[in-house]
Design a protein around this nucleic acid. Sequence first.
DNA 1: GTCTATACGCAGATAGAC
DNA 2: GTCTATCTGCGTATAGAC
Lengths: 198, 198
Amino acid sequence: MAAETRERIVEAADLLIYQHGFEVTSFADIAATVGISRGNFYHHFKTKDDILDGVINRRLANTEQMLDRWEIAGSDPAERIRSFIHILIVNGEKIRRYGCPVGTLSSELAKLNHTAKSDAAALFTLFRSWLCRQFERLGFGDKSDELAMHILGRSQGVATLANAFDDDRFLHHEVELMCAWLDDQIAGLANKNNPDRE
Amino acid sequence: MAAETRERIVEAADLLIYQHGFEVTSFADIAATVGISRGNFYHHFKTKDDILDGVINRRLANTEQMLDRWEIAGSDPAERIRSFIHILIVNGEKIRRYGCPVGTLSSELAKLNHTAKSDAAALFTLFRSWLCRQFERLGFGDKSDELAMHILGRSQGVATLANAFDDDRFLHHEVELMCAWLDDQIAGLANKNNPDRE
DNA sequence: GTCTATACGCAGATAGAC
DNA sequence: GTCTATCTGCGTATAGAC
C-alpha cells in the first residue's frame, strides 16, 4: 500500500508538472489530484525536489520501455527512426497544448538553475543514444550522433512551434519533411557506397 | 522621471523573466535589481500581468528594430535570412544558458494557461512574417510561409538542445546545416525555373 | 500510513505618510 | 513619485494525534 501511494503521487506529479510546470505545481495540487492530505506527503518524500527526482526517474523508465518497444516492433533501423518521428503526431494534441515534456522540463530547470537539470538532460540522452544506434546500424558511422542530434532538434522545434501556434497542419507537414530527410540521408549513403550514377 | 523608472522596471523584468522565467520572477527580485521599493511598483503597474505586458511590448519593439536593421544591412533576401540564422551564434552564450527568449516564454505561458500567450506568439509571428517576406522576394511564392515556419522551427530546436546539453559545437554545426539548406532551396528553385540540367 | 494543526516565509497587492 | 507599513493568502515543511 505504501509503495502504491508513492506511485500514485509520482504519477499525478508527472502529469501536473508536464501540464503546468514544476515550480507552479504545488503539493496542494498533487494532493488534491491523488486524494490525500498534504501532511501525508512527507511520509513518502522529504522535499519537493525529491518528487521531481521521482518524476524524472519514472519518465526515464517509461522512455526506456517505449524505446524497447520500438526496437522490437521496427523491422529495420529506418522504420524505428520513423517511430520516433511519429510520436509528434501520436502525442500531437498534448504537444500542441503543453509542448514536449522533455524539452519544456529541461528549459524550466535550466532557468531555475536546478540541480536536476542534468537528470532531465539524461532523458534527451536516452533518445539521442537510441537514435544514434539506429543510424550506426544503417551504416552512418561517425556521423550517426550528429544525425541523431539533428533529428532530435528538429522534433523539438516542431513541438515548440506547434505549441506556440496550436498548429496541427504544420506539425504534420514537418513530420513528412523529417521522413523525407531520412530517406534522403539513406539514399545519399547508398550513392556514396555505390557511385555508378552521379 | 516617471517614464524613466517605468522603463527601468520593464528592462529589469525583461532580463529576469528571460533568465529565470515569469512565474519565478517576483516583485522583490525586480525591485532589488532596479533599486526601488516594492510599494513604488504599483504606481507604474497595477498587477504583475501588466509588467508582463510591458515586457512583451518591449520585446516586440526591439525585435521590429532588429528586423529593420537586417532589412537594411542585407543586400539580398538570402543574406537577410542568414542574418536570422546567425542570431543563434551571436546570442549563443545566452541561449546555452537560458534558451531562446521567445520559445521559452511561449512555452511557459502555454503551461500557465496565461492570457498573454497569444501576445508571446505575436513575437514568433514577427519573425515568421519577416522571413516569409524574404522567401517571397526570392520567388518561392505560396511555399514562402512553409519555409519560414520550417527555419523558425529549426532554430527553436537548436536552441532547446544547445541549452539542454550546453553544446556550442552542435549549435555551430546546425547553423551550417541551416545555411546549406537555404542554399539548396534556392538552387532547387533555380533548377525548376531553368531546367537545362537534370 | 494517514490525518489535522500549525509554523514560517514570501508572494502579490493596498493604504497612506512624505 | 517614492517610501514604509501592513494585509491576506499560499507556498514548503514540521509535529504529533490516531
